[in-house]
Simulated scan of single mutants.
Amino acid sequence: MRNLAILCAAALATLPGVAQAAAPCLTPAEASSLAAYALPAAISGTTKRCAPTLSPTAFLRRGGAELANRYGARKAQNWPMAKTAFFKIGGAGKDQSSELLRQLPDPSLQQMLDAIIEGMVAQEIPTEKCGDIDRIVGLLAPLPAQNTADLIAVVLGLAGKSGKAQTDKFSICKA
């Protein structure tokens, strides 16, 4: 789950011209919205990467696309706060590229971010981890999308407090 959040955060940070600042602090609600928004693209990327290496009965091969679609039903609801989180992670750059991104219509920005998230996940997952990832996704699949997103935010917050999961992309603010 930590990798999912880092990949989501990195998605915006890799866009041309987006300035990097000191690791911003996301509120638990922002982290949850970011995870909820990114989950469908991340699940799609994971399914594309792992399906060829998994057995025909694996969850991702049987239900990955349906899960991504189900989780995608709440994307519009999560977008406003996720957008805020994406721009927090991307820094407060004032160059032309940053301004151009901020002026993009939401549907264009969403399409670009979805493609980046899906592509990054598909590239970054080591295929030898696909079996474990398939099991985790299968265990989380019965949960409503928002519960999964909230769980990701809580795990990131706990991991950050323990000092075992650090990222230079963002941290979870203390409540």
Rank of each mutant, 00 (worst) to 15 (best):
L15R: 15
K129L: 14
Q20L: 14
L54H: 03
S44V: 05
G17P: 04
D132G: 14
F59K: 00
I117C: 08
F86K: 03
L113K: 06
T27L: 04
D106A: 14
D150Y: 00
E66I: 02
D150T: 09
N147G: 10
P105D: 13
P142Y: 02
G72N: 07
I136C: 02
S32W: 00
Q166S: 13
N69E: 15
R49F: 07
T167E: 02
I133C: 04
S55G: 12
K83S: 10
A115R: 15
S97N: 10
G163H: 08
T127D: 11
P28S: 05
V18H: 10
A85V: 04
T127H: 07
K48A: 15
L4G: 13
Q123S: 13
P126E: 12
R70L: 11
I6P: 00
S171P: 00
G131L: 07
R49I: 08
G93Q: 01
A10N: 14
K129Y: 12
G90W: 05
D114V: 12
A122T: 07
M112R: 12
C130W: 03
G160E: 12
G163F: 06
K164A: 14
A35C: 12
L12A: 14
R2W: 09
A9N: 05
E66M: 10
L101T: 06
Y37E: 10
P28Q: 11
L4F: 10
L60Q: 04
I152S: 09
I172T: 02
L104S: 07
A38E: 03
T57S: 13
F59T: 01
N147T: 15
